[in-house]
Amino acid sequence: MRLNRSDPTRVENFPATFSEAYMKEIVNFGHRHNVKMLPTVHNLLYERGNQHVNKDVVRGMLATPETRRAFIQSMVQLIQQYEFDGVNMDFEDVYYEDREKLNDFYRELGREMRSRGWFFSVDTPSRTSDQPTNPFSAPFNYAVIGEAADQVVLMLYNEHGWPGSGPGPVVSSGWMGSVVNYALTKMPASKILAAVSVFGFDFNLTTGRNTYVTYSMAMDRAKQYGVKVVFDEKTQTPMFSYTDAEGNQHEVWFENADSIRAKMQQAHRLGIRGLALWRLGMEDPAIWQVLQNEFVISKLVD
């Protein structure tokens, strides 16, 4: 779900194909299987490639105490209507100038959720210091969010893969350590989930263009060009190189069961709550056997 563009104090309805009865059955199914059910609310994808629209919409919601309160009440109504267990907020494009209002919003929503006994989760872009060097993550104050929320999901993607980046893993073990260790200075380890990708990128080194690949796409591409997948020990991620029919040089970095295992083990060493995976359907199917056999899984669906 996302903020309504014309009235950002409210969230848009579910897709027309999702009736109220259907949504309630999904929530009930989760509850019957002891799964915490949260709606994820975001401010993305209004216009392809136009991040200013995303920022303008959330700015409208954050504008005043009254607009924030109206939005919080709409969230209360949504949770009550579908009997959710709380909410997951996934704001990702925010003007730096709105950072203090964003802090106020998280505090206000956190108090409301806590007063009702509901679970409050926040997704945050990755940052590694107090310095506002990255405009994407700079508006997000880890200390404020860590105090307000029950759970903080650190979105570790994309270390590499953003437009213009060089080749490399979406989330290396070193990057994961840097982001998590910074977060640990701002909030308890018990609140932290490290969100890692299950997708990857094909980096065209000749043209400089990066494209998404799922696990199956990566494996098909390696087979197509007859190249071997290698596991990079430094970053703890699989990769391979190939030359396409036009002579362009490529590197493909992605995730598989071995790299997810390594990240789960790293999360355990860091003492945090665990991992979150983005997004289902792109993953190596073998990760589920690894998770079932080697780790204890907490069920949270949003």
Rank of each mutant, 00 (worst) to 15 (best):
Asn28Asp: 14
Lys186Arg: 15
Lys223Glu: 13
Arg114Asp: 01
Leu291Met: 15
Asn43Thr: 03
Asn141Ser: 13
Asn43Leu: 07
Thr133His: 09
Asp258His: 14
Pro139Met: 02
Asp302Lys: 12
Val94Asp: 00
Ser298Asp: 15
Gly117Ala: 02
Ala286Asn: 00
Phe254Ser: 00
Met1Phe: 01
Thr235Gly: 05
Met1Trp: 00
Gln73Tyr: 12
Asp302Thr: 14
Glu283Cys: 09
Leu300Pro: 08
Thr243Ala: 10
Gln73Arg: 15
His250Glu: 04
Ala189Lys: 03
Met113Asp: 06
Arg69Thr: 07
Thr185His: 11
Val57Met: 02
Thr243Trp: 01
Val35Met: 13
Leu156Val: 00
Phe119Leu: 14
Arg261Thr: 02
Lys299Cys: 08
Ala148Ile: 12
Gln266Tyr: 05
Gln77Asn: 12
Asn158Glu: 15
Lys223Thr: 08
Gln131Val: 08
Trp288Asp: 05
Pro188Asp: 12
Phe199Cys: 10
Val35Leu: 12
Gly30Ser: 09
Arg32Ile: 06
Asp302Cys: 05
Val180Cys: 13
Gln265Leu: 10
Asp93Pro: 03
Ala257Arg: 00
Thr211Leu: 15
Pro163Leu: 00
Leu154Cys: 06
Ser6Ile: 10
Ala148Tyr: 03
Val180Ser: 04
Tyr95Gln: 04
Met239Trp: 09
Pro132Val: 03
Asp258Phe: 04
Gly166Ser: 03
Asp85Gln: 11
Thr64Met: 01
Val180Pro: 04
Ile272Met: 11
Ile260Leu: 07
Gly164Val: 02
Glu159Arg: 01
Val58Thr: 14
Gln77Leu: 05
Thr40Asn: 10
Gln77Lys: 03
Arg209Met: 12
Tyr96Trp: 10
Lys191Ala: 00
Ser178Cys: 08
Gln249His: 11
